[in-house]
Structure formats: structure tokens, C-alpha cells
């Protein structure tokens, strides 16, 4: 729990440094409301990943914040190691929205995965068959434009 709080605290300090989102805000200055929503999304994603940490998964400190329109997706590159198990967790801060996560191999083919969905939180679990580049696609399946957070854990 201490680590979760530390991570959450760190996320607050990192919010201003997020990478460009697929649909960046037109506002040049950070919107306080957006920032709060992003922090809440990170908190929700960490809460979901926390369920896996009870099973020995290590939660990566890094995360991705983005903003998505309905039906739109963000694609993030990750590098996985053969034999390791991974859970990719994403969340938005609104019960009325739903995300979908799909993991693809380096050629863009979907990989066998386990899915979990709980309202605005969703996760995809994969066991990497080969080491290398993979793609994690997060789609806003339902609900209006929203900020989301993607993190992952491994063991």
C-alpha cells in the first residue's frame, strides 16, 4: 500500500510531463480538471494492477496517459521477454466509459490473451511466447472523450 501511495504521489508530479496523446488537448496550459482526471485514472489503473501484485507481479513505475475519443485507439510499444507473464491495465475515471485492450505481436497479429473488464477498468494478460516488440492497443469502446492511464505488471 505504501508503494501504491508513493507511486500515486510520483504520478502527480509527472502529470505535466506526459507524452503527446493521440488527441492532445487544444489548450496549451494544463487544465486542472484534466489533471485530476488523469491522476484518478492512474489511481484506478494501479488499483487494478495491485490485484495482480498479490500474485507476485511487479508493477512497472512507468505509465502512459492519453486522451481518447469514442471508438479511437492509442497504440503503445512494449518489449516483452519470452516466458514472462504480463498484465496490461488501463482505466478511465468515469463509470460511464469502457476501455478495451488488445495485445499484438511485432507483426501486428493479435496474441493469445486473457481479458478482464470491470466498468472503466480493463486488463489484458499475456504470456510472451517470444522475446521482442509487442503493441498494446487501448480503445475507448464506450462513453465520451476521456483521459486514460495505461500501466503494466510482470512476473
Amino acid at each position: 500500500m505504501k508503494r501504491l501511495l508513493l507511486a500515486l504521489f510520483a504520478s502527480m508530479s509527472l502529470l505535466h510531463a506526459q507524452e503527446a496523446s493521440p488527441t492532445p488537448s487544444p489548450s496549451a496550459t494544463p487544465d486542472v480538471t484534466d489533471t485530476a482526471a488523469e491522476a484518478a485514472a492512474r489511481s484506478a489503473a494501479l488499483e487494478l494492477a495491485g490485484a495482480f501484485s498479490n500474485d507476485g507481479y511487479k508493477i512497472r513505475d512507468g505509465f502512459y496517459f492519453g486522451t481518447l475519443e469514442t471508438g479511437k485507439s492509442a497504440l503503445v510499444e512494449v518489449n516483452l521477454f519470452a516466458g514472462n507473464e504480463y498484465w496490461f491495465c488501463a482505466a478511465v475515471n468515469d463509470p460511464g466509459r469502457k476501455l478495451a485492450i488488445t495485445v499484438y505481436d511485432e507483426k501486428g497479429a493479435p496474441v493469445e490473451q486473457q481479458g478482464y473488464e470491470d466498468g472503466p477498468k480493463t486488463a489484458a494478460g499475456v504470456v510472451a511466447g517470444t522475446s521482442g516488440k509487442y503493441f498494446v492497443k487501448v480503445t475507448l469502446a464506450e462513453g465520451a472523450k476521456s483521459s486514460f492511464c495505461l500501466i503494466y505488471c510482470y512476473k
Binding site: 493521440p22 505509465f63 492509442a74 497504440l75 501486428g108 500501466i151
Partner: peptide
Amino acid sequence: EMKTVIVLDELS
């Protein structure tokens, strides 16, 4: 779609 991929030091 693959051309839009985001590469982040802390995640990728």
C-alpha cells in the same frame, strides 16, 4: 495503425 505507435522510455 502501426505508424501511430507511441514509444515511451518508461514503458517501452
